Simulated assay, not measured.
Amino acid sequence: MEITMLARLNNDHKHIAILLNILKVKYSRLEVGEAVNYNLIRDIVEYMQSYAEHSHHPLEDIIDSYYMAKYSPEARDEKLAKEHQKLTEFSASLMANLNLILSDVVVSREQLIIDLKSYVAEQEEHMVYENSTIFPLWSKMTDEEDWKNIQQECSLKLIDDPLFNDDDNVLFEELREYINSDDTD
């Protein structure tokens, strides 16, 4: 059970890294004055909002709360939950700007570049923190009963990844096609 939950979270991180790399390409192109597909950028942020913020991060919060309560109550720390909240605010702000752009409202290219760079940097720093500090702590929980309890608590937040799965879901179809192609726009 533990292996499954942590493997899922690690797999999510790999998928998120793919999307962050696409955003890096997009803001690099913006920096040199090239055109980019703003719909694709919005789809990435929308994916982060719909999946990472509503399933991935809540799962992490549940596991962290369980771990802290049972194994480290004296060191109770809300850092992870605070980072998740900060990332939610970042993506909401970025999404608002992208929606303005897609509605033909003028938004400073320079500001969008700064926002995209900050967003990517925050997401990457957050994943490094989780991969190097948080996940190794959780992997020390070896009691199968703990993981069954966590699984039960997580069941309400567990959703299938709407982008990186094998079903015929049309949500994020353009983004899925982009990832699977050699398209450079």
Rank of each mutant, 00 (worst) to 15 (best):
M5W: 08
A7R: 14
D12T: 06
K14D: 09
H15M: 05
I16E: 06
I18V: 14
V25F: 09
L30N: 08
V32S: 12
V32K: 15
E34T: 02
A35R: 14
L40F: 08
I44H: 06
M48V: 01
Q49K: 09
E53N: 15
L59R: 07
L59C: 11
I62D: 13
I62V: 12
P73L: 04
E78V: 06
K82D: 10
E89M: 08
F90T: 03
S91H: 01
A92E: 15
L102I: 00
Q111M: 05
L112P: 11
L112R: 06
I113L: 09
A121C: 13
A121N: 12
A121H: 14
E124K: 01
E124M: 00
E125F: 02
H126W: 12
M127L: 07
Y129W: 03
P136M: 00
E144R: 12
D146G: 03
N149F: 02
Q151K: 04
E153K: 13
S155V: 03
D166S: 09
D167H: 06
D168F: 03
V170G: 15
L171R: 15
E173Y: 14
L175H: 12
Y178A: 06
Y178G: 00
I179W: 08
I179E: 01
D182C: 13
T184L: 13
T184Q: 15
D185Q: 07
